[in-house]
Amino acid sequence: MQQIIFFLIRNKNFLLFIALFSISIFLTIQTHSYHKNKFVNSSNAITGGIYSIKSSITDYFNLKEENKILINENTRIRKQLESFKSKVVYQNIDTSSILSKYYFVSAKVINNSFSKTKNKLTINKGKRDSIQLDMGVITSKGIVGIIDNLSNKYATIQSILNTNSQINAKLKNAKHFGSLVWNAEDPNVIQLIDIPRLAPVKTGDTIVTGGRSTIFPEGILIGVVIDFELTEDENSQNLNIQLFNDMTNLEHVYIIDNIDTQEIINLEKGLENVE
């Protein structure tokens, strides 16, 4: 007994080191699976608060750029609106009666990372703004990521620039689907894999979201093809895609709330139970 205690005292530094090191490794491995890191994330009140103070200062440096982006978006949406108006016979529709499957919530990015292999963003909206896990996040130009962790006032997003990220996407003018992944090399170039060999791919083709999940609606812009090649087994092609979004400079984002999500999830759960 005495010897055990002596042993513990003599090696207390080593044992402490092993214990704390194992805890760290455990926390690290948890982050490798999607939204399992409940404990260590920057959506809590302290880190979120510090980041929002920082962003309230640094935002002023980007005001001009942000205004330009907003004006461009307004112009584009105004154009679309006019084209819809000319098609619809009844001119004065009550906008509150237009049924949409999707609601949009705007949020501000208070911390952005793009130089690591597993990048996350922090935004200033959380549970109290009825944000939930697994909602999609986009900007006016393209997709950004998926909500990963939540607190009352803040949330973190798993960016598409994350080696764990895998999003369903397709060619805009064909029906071929693939998965969007990132090889951690360039923050503006992302890879679309598992596109069938027969799919007619050309450089310059537009890539959009596939709409096969409840997270993103179909047809959200992603980027254009810059080059492509067959895989070694010659069954599918891998595409390099230049993003429309500048992931290094994000400020205002929209969170997509699909009102049918719960229903779809319940239905799928029901099916599993039957089996």
């Binding site: 530094n13 080593f14 080191f17 704390l20 090191f21 805890i23 760290s24 490794i25 455990f26 926390l27 690290t28 491995i29 948890q30 982050t31 490798h32 890191n37 260590v40 994330n41 920057s42 809590n44 302290i46 880190t47 510090i50 980041y51 911390n111 990372s113 690591k116 597993k118 996350k120 922090t122 962790n149 973190t156």
Partner: peptide, 19 residues
């Protein structure tokens, strides 16, 4: 790690060099 959303990688690296 809390700030950078990185799980425990900084904690592990720090504990290692402290040891």
């Amino acid at each position: 790690d809390f700030f950078l959303d990185s799980g425990g990688i900084h904690a592990a690296a720090c504990v290692f060099i402290a040891y």
